[in-house]
Nucleic acid binder design. Structure first.
Lengths: 187, 187, 187, 187
DNA sequence: GATGAATGAGGCTTCATTCAT
DNA sequence: GATGAATGAAGCCTCATTCAT
């Protein structure tokens, strides 16, 4: 396996389990099956490792959220599609979700990485603005819409992950989406 | 000033700024104006310090949320009161909010502290159940209602804090509450 | 109870269990049932505490060894009496024996305390010299006689202490005394 | 030079000079000419260092005592050979002798290390039993024979080391061996 | 005499990073 | 590219001692 990839995926797992400052680089390299020095060949510093990881995960998440959205006919469908994309991706990648939240405001992630990360979600702001203009969505501050939608989705995911695998989880995901949609839809 | 209190409040500030593992005990004691040993006289370990802090903050938050709730006439009023209590407290105590979120699932907080923390919010679950029974609130899984309400509130607070002080913030808080209520309420 | 005495006896117990450097003064005061500061009222420093203890134990041991010796008729009887005194005292005061051995060459005990300690055993050197002069004891270097006798006695005691309480221990003590006497007696 | 060896020999010297708890690991590494971290690279903890040292020294001592013993014709010669081996080794390795005595009953040495250490001296017990069976040695408890012989040897060594280098020391060693043999031998 | 909160130097250990092989 | 022995700054915590009450 590619050593760089091994380091990145091991770091993701360990960072979410133990935090950035709680996971020694030596542990990452050991669990990734490489030598101490190898990690520092691929990433000049520990911070660079986290920065790379952050960019990769954010980009993957942005792509996942957008999947199939443009093909949806209406604003409502598009927003619901984003929501279910988010839930599905979050359920399948709990570590990545947790990692993103953990480092969303972290000083260990460079400003450029933060900005780059944000850029993957600009299309959502456009979507909200379109919805407001069309009168489908309440005329709230669009940033608020984004914030509460994101926060609600992550709340739903975290509860769903704590809740077995079966029909119960499915209901939570459906009700969660309904909650969000009812919160923003006009009338 | 009481040294134990000085240590706790300094720790709160530094933990939210730099994370638990990112703030040396030496920094805490220095900024609190006490000697290294004094911190360990009041808190046997760094973990015990964080645990005490967590209990104190959770308890304060629980009390704040509940303030005046019982005096409200209807379920809707009570829930709205909890919401505005939460927003007001969060705006006034941003560090405490951040601290609670940071350590909500942290292994550095003991299980008993987590449980004790949760207990301050049980009344909310009762409130939701009452609402469902009375047909005022949608018949969702009550844990979901709690989770998304909490997540939404925290999203609103974090945005409001980024948004000046004046009328704009006020609108965000109002709209945030509306979002939550619309997400929850029946019909 | 007298606090000074309580501190001394607690210190003796803890020093033999955990060594001098391994027992904090705070532990001594806690187990002695006095406050931290009290220990330092009676003993200016930790070293002074150990020094006092050393003097007290050495003096007690010297007195114990000498008990009834002058009343014995012959050199052999006197030497045997010293030996059985030593064994009896050692069995009854294992902590004190251990303490003396532990600090026999310790830099934490002052030179004057060492010299004072030695002085309690000078009568033994005289006894050996008398024995040699009378032709009862082999003409060995008297310091050697003292050294091996002391070493042998302590070896016997340590084994006896590991050996139950009954008849077995008694036999070990008797055989130990025989060993010593055969080692030094002439012909 | 091998760093692991440098650490071990420096530790031996310092431990005997100042005791285990009295010698900081920082002093060991400094005097051994290595960095702080290097000590902990080779020995996970300070206790592991002492444990390793104990095993090494005990094993070396056991080998030294046994040297040439099997080639001796009689029990008496064999026992005398063990005795003179012990004295010679002790005189040449005073720090190692002192170290072994210091840690003979120390809680800092693991039980397995203690047991392993003992195993190197089992041949001596066999020797004593043979002597008793052949009627050459007094019928004492064999454990007692071992204990007093060991204690006496160490007493002789400690006195000899205090006594110049010349003929005087030689006499002490000879007389010491005689003392032991007379203490043990039958008739 | 007695207390115990307070101090800060110092001890053990970890860990990001380097570099010779 | 890859390794892992080596480094030393820095972190957590202990503990002898002081002093105001």
């Amino acid at each position: 396996m590619d050593k760089r990839e091994a380091i990145l995926s091991t770091a993701l797992r360990l960072f979410t389990d133990r935090g950035f400052q709680g996971t020694p680089t030596s542990l990452i390299s050991r669990e990734a099956g490489v030598a101490t020095g190898t990690l520092f060949f691929y990433f000049k510093t520990k911070e660079e490792l986290i920065d790379s990881l952050y960019r990769a995960v954010k980009s993957e998440a942005g792509t996942a959220l957008r999947d199939g959205v443009d093909a949806e006919p209406s604003i409502e469908d598009r927003i619901r599609r984003v929501g279910s994309n988010a839930l599905a991706w979050g359920i399948k990648n709990p570590a990545k979700i947790q990692f993103m939240e953990q480092f969303a405001h972290s000083p260990f992630v460079s400003t450029t990485a933060h900005d780059e990360g944000m850029s993957h979600f600009h299309f959502l702001l456009d979507l909200m603005n379109d919805g407001i203009r069309q009168g489908v969505i309440r005329d709230y501050d669009p940033r608020l819409l984004l914030h509460v939608m994101a926060a609600s989705l992550s709340g739903v995911i975290s509860l769903a992950l704590k809740t077995g695998n079966g029909r119960e989880r499915k209901r939570i995901l459906e009700q969660g989406l309904e909650y969000i949609w009812n919160g923003i839809r006009k009338n």
